[in-house]
Design a protein around this nucleic acid. Structure first.
Length: 108
DNA sequence: GACATGACCCGCG
DNA sequence: CCGCGGGCCATGT
């Protein structure tokens, strides 16, 4: 078992994630574009590990279609339910389709 | 260095 | 509207 220290790429992801103001959200694609990555999937990889939780508000990162996405390695389940709860607590509520309003998305 | 995995995205039918 | 397949990037084995 090797030590998996956070890479520079992951640090950029965490840094950008921390910049998201409360009550707002962002998407993997926007995050990827900000840190200079053409793939949002790599961003998700870094967040799923999220060794800095809850220091890093990864729950504010949603998919491009503004759906929840995943949380702690799960795309559905208790952790996801918790994620929705945290967002609602910050003023970000989901509609009947599990999506948030476009104007709640924070663009860099 | 090659193969497999993933909290994704986009286009097509 | 739904499902399928390909593409992209970084990580871990």
């Amino acid at each position: 078992m090797e030590k998996r220290e956070p890479t520079e790429f992951e640090q950029r992801v965490y840094d950008a994630t921390c910049r998201i103001p409360k009550g707002k959200v962002t998407t993997y694609k926007l995050l990827a574009a900000e840190i200079g990555c053409g793939s949002s999937q790599a961003v998700g990889q870094a967040l799923k590990r999220n060794p800095f939780a809850p220091e890093v508000p990864c729950h504010r990162v949603l998919r491009t279609d503004l759906s929840i996405g995943g949380f702690y390695g799960q795309t559905q389940g208790r952790e996801i339910l918790r994620k929705k709860k945290m967002l609602a607590d910050e003023g970000v509520e989901l509609d009947g389709h599990g999506r948030v309003a476009r104007d709640l998305v924070f663009e860099y």
